[in-house]
Amino acid sequence: MKSIILKTASNYLLPLLLLFAVFILFRGHYKPGGGFVGGLIASIAFVLHAFANGLQSTRKLLRYPPGAFIPTGLAISLLSGLAPMFAGKPFMSAEWLSIHIPIIGLLGTPLFFDIGVFFVVIGIALTILFTISETIL
């Protein structure tokens, strides 16, 4: 698409949508939201950028192929599930540190699990959507 309005708007909306996606990610382990919804919002931000600026421009912006986010997210989620086992607790038990970060809240394994889900959703959604758009164009 060659709309100058969409191209200009997408350049401003991309950082705002990514910031909103991170907000939803961090909000998720206390209220509705989390890694899945945040990952979808981040994916939508990159798809909007691809519509306005072209797929190759968005691929350069990402720096890594979208499929690379999938194993990274799976590893983070797996490690967050294994961490409680070192303390003698069952797999995927919630463990919390006593550190309270002002905006995020308490650090714990559920947050890291959500971060892993965030990366997996971005990787899967962008891989599917970029593959479809490459076959259409």
Rank of each mutant, 00 (worst) to 15 (best):
V22W: 01
G108A: 15
A75C: 06
A45C: 12
L18W: 07
Y64L: 12
T109Q: 06
L106S: 15
R59T: 08
H49C: 02
P66I: 13
K2I: 03
T109G: 13
F130N: 01
L14H: 00
T127R: 00
L40Y: 09
F23H: 06
F86G: 13
S3V: 00
Y64A: 12
L25Y: 03
I24T: 15
Y30S: 09
A83F: 10
Y64W: 12
A75Q: 08
L79Q: 02
F51C: 01
E134Q: 11
S93W: 14
L78I: 10
L25G: 02
I5N: 01
K60N: 13
D114V: 08
G35E: 10
T58M: 02
L79P: 06
L61P: 02
G88S: 07
L126F: 05
L61M: 09
F20G: 03
Y30P: 03
T72G: 14
V37H: 11
I44M: 09
G34V: 07
Y30R: 14
K89D: 12
T58N: 02
I132F: 09
S93T: 12
L137N: 15
F91S: 03
A94M: 11
S3A: 04
Y30K: 15
I128R: 03
P32S: 08
L14D: 05
N53M: 03
T109I: 14
V47F: 04
P65K: 15
N53I: 00
I76N: 07
V120P: 00
T72S: 14
I70S: 05
G28I: 04
G108I: 14
K2P: 02
G81N: 06
G73Q: 08
